[in-house]
Design a protein around this nucleic acid. Structure first.
Lengths: 264, 264
DNA sequence: GCCCATTTGTGCGTATGTATG
DNA sequence: GCATACATACGCACAAATGGG
């Protein structure tokens, strides 16, 4: 008997939840698996039942199963190995955040990322119409400010805003609990959706007073300001973030989307 | 009789060229269409034969045709419209470069990109072992230096290196001809492959003398240095670029890849 | 080294649904 | 209503990679 951490029945139950008339079956299957991962039912490394078993256990044919699983591979949720099986993709859930902002600082060798240690410094309900509200098209926002130590060498300041109504989890967790969380994972678990793309805007400017103070910089100091808007689907922004980076020698690594046309 | 700018026979011929034992048929079909576009046989807006016709004309079944076409949609080469057909995606081939470096400066409104006017300033054969040779794993490189005017407001300096043997086109074209070219398109036409991803490395540093001189900056001036390494497929780097950006108020826009895990 | 079971990958043929004009 | 053309789905067959005996 082979260990079988993920049951086809469990997927079947999730599938029922996400099946809706009009929704393709391969999409329903995808959603079921994604939500199962998001809710912790499936853990990284878990093996899924093989294609045949799924096709038998679920009201979905083999080809359609394969299409759904292929999409999950494309999205990075699954890993499939010929002759072995399909596995929930690993996530390095360490103490430090794995991917703080879709871009990371690299060390001298260029091969490793500097570790990142976030410290939540404040939370505020926002109701003014700022740039964030236009980007998120939300009336109420929660701003979470953090000082993030980069490899204990220097720190950056982050202002992170989400729709307060849509993602109440960010208002509910204590600041202490937020510290250990990867915000992308949090969004994934709360919404069952993956962040599809992030628009980054880079500006050389003076940081706001809050940031200067938190980073211990003198007034008027120039910073690199990185604005990030993350989307779950095309046009559906889920968070708005400003990161202020003081002068540093360290290189910041971003992985850019190559087929970034997106136009008619 | 409906206008039919793209013949199934043409695709068939291309398909023969790209079919190789071991290569999936849907990949061969993809390559055939991509190369047909790259070589100018198909132009933006052209309509492909419908799925049925392709399935009849080519030794590929409907489902496999669909899979290949779907991939082309994902890559942005094709656009498919329900009830209408499959069309070669449009490219805004203007006088100015459309996407100089996977990231662009935006104007005051935030809605438009500043126009970009490249001016090629030099070309040099490289045979030393620089950082470029490690990135490209190439022994001989061609470096093309350019001064790129951003909306006629300010200029950035670019050093662009490709493998001289792999992409001789960059050595063959005159500097004048290179001016009007989008380098990504040039690579696409020469190799028939699309750039899949770009690694960006951002550094606050002093620019090299060449760059300072070309941009008319005083010695020791701090610049934003953007290093870009573009990949055709995972691990297959195709160009290495350094861009030096003088201090500016303008925002630089980058579209980041959201599923940027890429690790085990 | 070789066979074999397991499991994913590729490919075919067909049927039916649905958006467009 | 109707023809066109893409979209989804099924069921099957066989190829190819993997790991164990």
């Amino acid at each position: 008997m082979i260990t079988e951490p993920v049951s086809a029945k469990e997927i079947g139950r999730m599938l029922d939840k996400f099946s809706r008339p009009g929704l393709p079956k391969y999409t329903a299957l995808r959603d079921a698996v994604v939500h199962a991962v998001a809710s912790g039912k499936f853990a990284p490394g878990d093996r899924l039942p093989n294609e045949q078993e799924l096709a038998e256990a679920l009201p979905i044919s083999l080809g359609t199963i394969q299409r759904g699983l292929r999409q999950l591979v494309d999205e990075g949720v699954l890993q499939r190995r010929h002759g072995q099986g399909s596995f929930i993709a690993g996530r390095t859930t360490n103490d430090e955040m794995s991917h703080p902002f879709h871009c990371r600082f690299i060390d001298d060798t260029g091969a490793n990322y500097l570790k990142v240690y976030p410290k939540t410094t404040g939370r505020k309900q926002l109701s003014d119409k700022g740039l964030w509200s236009a980007a998120l098209s939300a009336a109420k926002g929660v701003e979470i400010t953090r000082v993030i130590s980069i490899g204990k060498e220097f720190s950056v300041y982050s202002s992170f805003v989400v729709d307060a109504l849509r993602l109440p989890i960010f208002s509910e967790l204590s600041l202490r609990e937020l510290d250990g969380e990867n915000f992308k994972d949090l969004i994934f678990r709360a919404s069952g959706q993956l962040i599809k793309r992030v628009d980054l805007f880079l500006r050389q400017a003076e940081a706001p007073k809050d940031a200067l103070k938190a980073l211990g910089l003198s007034e008027g100091a120039q910073c690199l300001c990185l604005k990030a808007i993350a989307y779950l689907t095309e046009g559906d922004a889920v968070y708005y973030q400003n990161i202020y980076i003081p002068p540093t020698n360290r290189e910041l690594h971003v992985i850019a989307d190559a087929r970034a046309s997106g136009f008619e």
